[in-house]
Design a protein around this nucleic acid. Structure first.
Lengths: 111, 111
DNA sequence: TAAGTATATAAGTATATACTTATATACTAA
DNA sequence: TTAGTATATAAGTATATACTTATATACTTA
């Protein structure tokens, strides 16, 4: 595949932030937990309890995921509920698909 | 989606290593470069020159990518040539697809 | 308003990461 | 065998990350 080097530089910067945010076991477990059927919405303190993290630690992980546009935060009264940022996640997935498309098309060239 | 918590713990550990390996701008640029049509095979010193890295820095990045089963190394004479680990990459992609499937199925539940 | 609850942020610390330079190892070719 | 080349590894350093405790902010309710 022929990839414009400016384009790959831009997309690499975006993917770096995404992969950094995803490259942590606690954040991955949090994402799987949040994708569970049983959980409708989840607050910071519930996440902290569930993940066996202190409240600030949970808050900091959530900030990373929010900054990387993986999660969205909605304030309701005294609580802040975190949900997936669907719109952004679809874009993230497309970038990852493109990366693997580039890589795997190269692989099949070599067969 | 209902995900077994042991399973999500296992897959999270695998994905953590993968995402950590991918969560670095130099390694991402290296991956894009390596997926270029023009490059058939590439040695450590060529990568170092191309990426404007010292030889040890390039070697260390390549080690991370090899350990994470993103790249494969083949020794030919005095050189070591790095290529994509196609077989493993296909598995990696499936794990990522599953993660996003979990996440995005949750998203559409909430619509 | 005051007290309590939920969350974020600040500041400090231990560990991980990404680099550096120096050196070891493995191969090639004179 | 010796000199040169390619790569890996070791050791040191600067910065980033993930946590901790302490505190600030925002909201709720008595």
């Amino acid at each position: 595949m022929r990839i414009n080097s400016e384009y790959s530089s831009d997309i690499s910067q975006e993917l770096e932030e995404l992969f950094k945010a995803l490259g942590n076991i606690n954040r991955l477990l949090l994402i799987y937990s949040l994708s569970s059927d049983e959980i409708e919405k989840i607050s910071v303190s519930e996440i902290a309890q569930m993940m066996d993290l202190t409240q600030p630690a949970a808050s900091q992980h959530l900030k990373v995921l929010k900054t990387a546009k993986i999660l969205d935060a909605k304030k309701k009264g005294n609580h802040i509920y975190y949900t997936f940022n669907q719109r952004a996640l679809i874009k993230h997935k497309k970038k990852i698909d493109f990366l693997f498309e580039c890589v795997l098309s190269k692989c099949s060239d070599l067969e």
